[in-house]
């Protein structure tokens, strides 16, 4: 298998220089997700401003794929409307579940298209999805809390 398909420059770049990393205040909801098979962990917080995700902050430990994926997620979804973010989320999950057969849409996925190669490595798909699942969980919690308050 082609190693450079997996470790694209973009991925290595995000891994070495992650965007938006570090936990910040204020936040509406925070979650901690782990990948039980390998011990990768992420703590992720989201702040909402009405319909908009006004901050995504995170910290974690894990392999280059899981860490780069969190950085790409930040770049792509921070400041987006919740609905838009969930649409991108769905596209990324579809790409990861596609066993390399799904053609990624760069318009929607931006740097996340670099993860297309990861989808061919079943053992690594969970690494790529760790922060994305955490985000979905955190946003859902934050939205639910907001509704309670209204």
């Amino acid at each position: 298998m082609q190693l450079d398909q997996l470790y694209q420059e973009i991925i290595l770049d995000h891994y070495k220089r992650p965007k938006g990393r570090g936990l910040r205040e204020p936040f509406a909801a925070g979650v901690h997700h782990v990948n039980p098979t390998c011990g990768d962990e992420i703590t992720l917080r989201v702040a909402l401003d009405g319909e908009t995700i006004s901050d995504i902050s995170y910290d974690g430990q894990g392999c280059s794929i899981s860490q780069a994926s969190a950085s790409v997620l930040y770049e792509l979804l921070n400041g987006r409307k919740v609905d838009d973010a969930f649409a991108v989320h769905a596209a990324f999950v579809e790409l990861m579940g596609g066993k390399g057969q799904v053609e990624p849409d760069e318009e929607v996925l931006g740097d996340a298209v670099a993860f297309a190669g990861v989808a061919k490595y079943p053992a690594r798909v969970k690494c790529a999805l760790l922060s994305w699942m955490a985000l979905k969980d955190a946003v859902a919690q934050a939205v639910a809390l907001e509704k309670e308050e209204v």
Binding site: M1, L3, L6, Y7, T37, C38, G39, D40, Q61, G62, C63, S64, I65, S66, Q67, Y121, R124, C127
Partner: peptide, 24 residues
Amino acid sequence: HPHDVGQVLDSLGVQVRVGHHCAK
């Protein structure tokens, strides 16, 4: 990270285990 170590080694045919080895 060991995952990355294991992945590159695999590309060279070398099969090692990475992770917490069921002994967290």
